[in-house]
Every structure is written in structure tokens, then in C-alpha cells.
Simulated scan of single mutants.
Amino acid sequence: MTAAPAPRRISLCADDYGMSEGVNRAIRDLIGKGRLSATSVMVVGPAFTRNEIDDLKAVARDRPGFSIGLHLTLTAPYHPLTLHFRPQKHGEFLKLGKLLQTALLRRLDVEIFRAEIVAQIEAFTTMLGRAPDYVDGHQHAQLFPQVRDAFLSAVKEHAPNAWVRQCGRGGEKPRPVKDAKALMLDVLSVAFRERATRAGLRFNPAFAGAYKFSKKPDFGKLFERFLHRLPDGGLIMCHPGFVDATLVALDPLTDQRRAEYDWLMSDDFPRMLAANNVTLA
């Protein structure tokens, strides 16, 4: 007889609250059904408004322990909050690839990035009336060289009780790398964890949820893979949403957001958690 899997508690976080009203509404639906542990808020998104935040706070109020964090955003097509932010192009942050390239060449001004990160923490704190429970990064930019130094310094000073997201995979044994993105996140997360530890900041022990969105795979099968070997306390990110005009204008990830939402709202999701002896933190 096969032994039952050991019990685990994991966090399931929906990123991108504030990107569009359709994304916001889908995330609130899932919170109301108890299908999420947390959501990360983009303060530079067009749907980061008083009404949208009030609606988020209202639904989260009925879910004790639900976490709301800052989804630090430093890539196009979004605009910086600070007046003298550099580098930028046509008033926007750099695109992801260009930011990574510039960071790897150590050509960023750490203090300029720190000022922008502080501004986003303060915007979150002002709108929600409290500091973020945690801070992560849109497109994982918080892991990049130089950016991570600015990021950890700003969080340490302005949200010292928050934990931060690292994006390395967990598990007792090394797992095969199926794509370059997972490998890059593993590598970048090593230095990030070392610096976070030195700064005295807490972070998640393991991470899952990255995949090639453009291929539109079966999200249920992907989620089962995410659960495999994810240790107790691990974090899975997700990106549920309803497609609206704002989302289409801002982000290439559209229909797959609805696929994630539909599966997370389905009965298959709690059945999979139960079969794996997993509960949401």
C-alpha cells in the first residue's frame, strides 16, 4: 500500500493586482472562494485606484491571514514614479531584456533604483494604510544584479517586517531543468538569498509557477508539476485574470490568465490539493 504524501502548507500568490480591472476582479473572485493565499499589487498599474484597493481590502478582510504584498515593477510599458529615474525610454522603464542586460553589465545607478523602489513602497503604504506583508518583483526584476542591492536596502529600511520573494526551486534533490527561464531564476536567486540573509530579511524557501505562457498549456497539469517536490512553506505564483482592453494593451499574457482563473475556480483544484495532502497557507 502506497503511503500518503506528507502534509504540506504552501502559499499560492496571484500577481499583478492593479494591472487592469479584469485582472483585479478575477483575483477578488478567487480570494472570496478561498483559492489564494496572497496577491501582489502593482502600484504603477492603471487599475491601482482607491476603489479597486478598497474592494480588495473588503474581500481580504473575510479571509484571516490573507497576505497583500507589493509587486515592484521596473519594466516597460510602465512608468516610474520618481521624476529623475534612469535609464528609461520615452518615459517608460526599459523592457525586460534590456534591463537585464544593463544590470549584468553593472551599468545601473543603485541609488536611483533605490529611490524608485522606496517610492513604490510608500505608494503602497499610503493607499493600503499599512506596509506590505511582502515584496516581490514583476518579471522577477528584483533578482537582477544591482537591482537586488537597491531592492533589499529599500525593503530593509521601509518595510522591515516584510519577507521577500526568491525564485529558486526547492526539493531535496536537484531537478532537471526543462527551460532556460527556470535555470536563470535558479542562478539569480542564489546571490539574492545570500544578500537577503545578510540583510536579515526572510524569504520563501522554494518557488514554482514559471512556465512558457505563449504555449497555452493545460494549467491543471502544470500545477501538478509545480506541487511536485515543492517543500512545506513553498510559494507558487499564478496570474489569473479576465481579459479586458486594458490588459490587452499592456501585457501579452491574456487568454492564459482566464485559463488559470477557470482551473483555480474549478473543483479540480481542491481535489488536487487534497490528493497531494496540501493546504493553502
Results as ranks from 00 to 15, higher is better:
Val177Asp: 10
Gly241Trp: 02
Phe113His: 14
Arg63Trp: 05
Gln166Pro: 01
Arg9Ala: 13
Phe144Pro: 00
Asp262Gln: 08
Ala259Ser: 13
Arg195Ile: 03
Glu260Gln: 14
Cys167Thr: 15
Pro132Cys: 11
Gln256Val: 08
Cys13Asn: 14
Glu122Gly: 02
Asp267Gly: 10
Ala182Tyr: 04
Phe192Asn: 03
Val164Cys: 08
Phe269Thr: 04
Met184Trp: 07
Arg258Met: 09
Asn161Gln: 15
Gly170Thr: 04
Met237Glu: 05
Thr39Glu: 07
Arg28Thr: 06
Pro5Asp: 13
Gly137Val: 03
Lys98Gln: 15
Ala4Gln: 15
Asp244Tyr: 09
His90Thr: 02
Pro240Asn: 05
His228Ala: 13
Cys167Tyr: 08
Gly200Arg: 03
Arg50Asp: 14
Thr39His: 08
Ile68Glu: 00
Phe213Ile: 12
Phe124Cys: 02
Arg130Tyr: 11
Thr102Cys: 08
Phe219Lys: 00
Arg107Ala: 10
Asp133Ile: 08
Val23Glu: 05
Thr2Cys: 00
Ala259Glu: 10
Glu111Ser: 12
Ala182Phe: 05
Leu72Lys: 03
Lys216Phe: 11
His90Ser: 09
Arg114Ala: 12
Phe113Trp: 14
Pro64Glu: 07
Glu172Val: 10
Gln139Lys: 13
Met237Pro: 03
Met42Pro: 01
Ala275Cys: 05
Gln166Asp: 13
Arg193Ala: 15
Cys13Glu: 03
Ser37Asn: 05
Phe66Lys: 00
Gly168Lys: 12
Asp133Met: 06
Lys181Asn: 04
Arg202Lys: 15
Arg8Glu: 04
Arg225Gly: 14
Arg50Gln: 14
Asp232Lys: 01
Val23Asp: 09
Asp133Thr: 06
Leu104Gly: 05
Ser11Thr: 14
Ser214Thr: 12
Ala131Val: 10
Asp267Glu: 15
Pro252His: 06
Pro77Lys: 02
Leu143Cys: 11
Leu30Ile: 09
Arg61Leu: 15
Arg202Ala: 15
Pro174Leu: 15
Val155Asn: 04
Ala180Ile: 10
Pro87Asn: 10
Arg193Asp: 12
Val23Ser: 12
Phe242Gln: 09
Pro205Cys: 08
Pro174Phe: 07
Pro7Tyr: 09
Arg86Val: 06
Ala76Val: 00
Leu108Thr: 07
Gly18His: 01
His239Trp: 08
Leu72Ala: 08
Ala196Met: 10
Glu52Met: 02
Val190Trp: 13
Ile236Thr: 04
His158Arg: 11
Asp29His: 15
Arg106Thr: 00
Val147Phe: 12
Gly69His: 03
Gly170Met: 05
Arg202Gln: 14
Leu280Ile: 09
Gly91Lys: 00
Pro205Trp: 04
Ala58Asp: 14
Ala274Thr: 10
Thr73Arg: 01
His138Trp: 11
Met272Phe: 02
Ala38Phe: 08
Arg165Phe: 12
Arg8Asn: 03
Ser40Gly: 10
Pro46Thr: 03
Asp232Asn: 13
Leu253Val: 14
Ala103Gly: 10
Pro80Cys: 01
Phe269Ser: 07
Ala4Gly: 04
Arg169Thr: 10
Leu100Cys: 12
Trp163Val: 04
Arg202Thr: 11
Lys215Val: 09
Ser11Ile: 07
His158Thr: 06
Gly171His: 07
Ala150Cys: 05
Glu92Ile: 00
Thr125Leu: 04
Glu172Cys: 06
Val59Ala: 06
Ile117Val: 12
Met272Asp: 04
Asp262Met: 07
Arg35Asn: 09
Gly129Pro: 05
